[in-house]
Each structure stands twice: as C-alpha cells, then as structure tokens.
Amino acid sequence: MIVLENVTEVSLDNVREEVAAAIEQGWRFVTITAVDLNENEFEFIYHFHNPEFEIKNLRLTFPKGTVVPSVSGVLFCALLVENEIKDLFHIDFEGLALDYNGTFYTNVDELEEGERMIAPFATFTTVQKNKD
C-alpha cells in the first residue's frame, strides 16, 4: 500500500508545538487536508515543503465532535484553510485569528437550535437526526 512519505503522528495536545517547530526548521506551509475516515473519526494532514522539494507531513486523527486547536496564531496563512474546513466539515476550531463563523463559503449566519447541521463534505450519523 502506498502511503505518503515522511509522516509524523501528532496528537491534539502537541499539534501547535509541532507546527511551530516545523516553521523554525525552515519548512514552508502548504495546506491542511481533512479526510472523513469513517463514522467516528476525522483526520487532518498538515503538509510542508522546503526549497529542495522535500515533503513533511503531520497526521492528526481525532474523533468527531472534538474541538481542534487552531494553528493560525503561528501561521497566518492557515486561517483560510481552517475556515474552509469549518464550513465544509463542521469541525470547530479554538483560537482562530479571523473567524467567519460558517459564512466563508456557505451563507448561513448562525445555526439556530434544532437546525440541520450543514456539512457537505462529511457524514454525521450519530450527532443529529435527519442528516445525510
């Protein structure tokens, strides 16, 4: 099975320190990929490049419904990606530098009580009723 090269596993506690350490070492931030693994878990992969085109990846797996610490304090450019993930996967971040509150791509101002959660790219089977 082919997997990505140079993957380091991180956990929710040390994700900010790992990202800050990668930037200190001279890696350039590329993007964050969010994957809907199965019914209970999401996965984030943080990708970094350096001028010689080597790749470094940090993989973070967490159960659905947890609040993930945001790295936009360390990396200003991560805030666009995190807002997009928040809109499409409905994952909450803590500490976002500029928070669009769900209006980045979609047009919902605030979800009221009992409204359907809008998460076009992920499936939530246990959190609320009548969700795809």
């Binding site: 590329v30 993007t31 990929t33 994957v35 809907d36 992969i45 990708h47 200003f76 450019c77 666009l80």
Partner: peptide
C-alpha cells in the same frame, strides 16, 4: 492528494490551488 480504498470511487480528492496560497 488522492486517497483510495480499492473501489472505483475515490473517497478523497484534495486539490490545493496556487491562488488559495497567494491570498494571504
């Protein structure tokens, strides 16, 4: 970034475009 699980539909295709990185 492409992830495959052995079936004919790929579960995840992630596209990172350059303008997305140039907006900050």
């Amino acid at each position: 970034y492409v992830k495959s699980d052995g079936t004919k539909n790929l579960p995840r295709v992630r596209i990172r475009t350059p303008t997305f990185a140039n907006i900050p």
